[in-house]
Design a protein around this nucleic acid. Structure first.
Lengths: 153, 153
DNA sequence: GCATCTATTGAGACAAGGTATCTTTGTATT
DNA sequence: AATACAAAGATACCTTGTCTCAATAGATGC
């Protein structure tokens, strides 16, 4: 029931926005399709050594602006990218293995909008990252790092 | 009604954790007290040129681990630090002027805990940033940048 | 007050993640 | 096919930190 844009459709989406369909872009999109979890820019650079570093970053930026991939932060601030499977959503990040999940929560959206009123000014958007110890890591009792003020009381 | 730790108390807190009260640390803490809004590491480096860059970063890390300051992200991912006025809290970030605010929302905490159950695995903590156009910027109609998948529908 | 022990500092090299510049190449269009 | 301009590649550069290592300075015992 996800509204994932994929394959040729991604390129088509870019073309509709006036961007050209080039070989590097096709290769990057193709590579992304194989990925089910979070990835780094360097993953792509490593996987596609004949494509320039700058091009990889430029394409990532393009895909982000088009809402096709999104960027999130591990606990320590390390960046990760992941395919955007839904229009607006949030991420779960496993603090031990780094696995990325996705969730949607209408109630939170509504709440945040209310809070926006209280806070003064116009609410534009938000970022929510939920740090978890994923099912596998929790089962294996892998030690959870200290997370400072991000912890839940 | 905030539980802000300040001045000598910050140093005392560090000493209680076994850290020494050194001149650079005192100067950094003193400088931080003057700040009411978000700041960058480079702000401190610039303000305290006789203190080494590494020491500034080391002290920031220390203060973060002690829960005295916290780190957050502007829309574009740029890091900002801000004094932690409450135990566990979240931030509002003005997307046009970068002003940092703070809010607390028990309801969201509870909700996220519920979502944690659904998501599978153990919930450890979370990060929430609410992007706004602050009262001043909204009044002056300053243009809001595109924010990709972070926007609220 | 002085010696000592060790945490901390400063300087500077290094690393990750990304952007800017500039020339060459590739794509869409006529 | 010719052309115009978007995009690529190479590379230098920037920002935000971290690491190393010798020199220094707090805390402590005497």
């Amino acid at each position: 029931m996800t509204t994932e844009i994929k394959g040729a459709n991604i390129l088509a989406a870019l073309e509709n926005q006036g961007y050209r369909s080039t070989l590097p872009r096709r290769e990057i999109v193709e590579n992304l399709e194989k990925r089910s979890d979070g990835f780094t820019a360097e993953d792509l650079v490593r996987d596609l050594p004949h494509i320039g570093r700058a091009t990889v970053f430029r394409t990532i930026k393009l895909l982000m602006e088009s809402g096709i991939i999104c960027k999130l932060s591990l606990l320590n601030g390390e960046p990760r990218y992941s395919m955007a499977h839904a229009e607006h959503h949030h991420h779960t990040v496993c603090v031990t293995c780094g696995a990325i999940g996705e969730f949607h929560a209408g109630t939170i959206e509504r709440l945040l909008r209310l809070i926006g009123n209280e806070v003064g000014g116009a609410i534009i958007g938000h970022r929510i990252e939920l740090y978890i110890s994923c099912a596998t890591c929790a089962r294996e009792n892998r030690p959870v790092p200290s997370i400072g003020h991000l912890r839940v009381s």
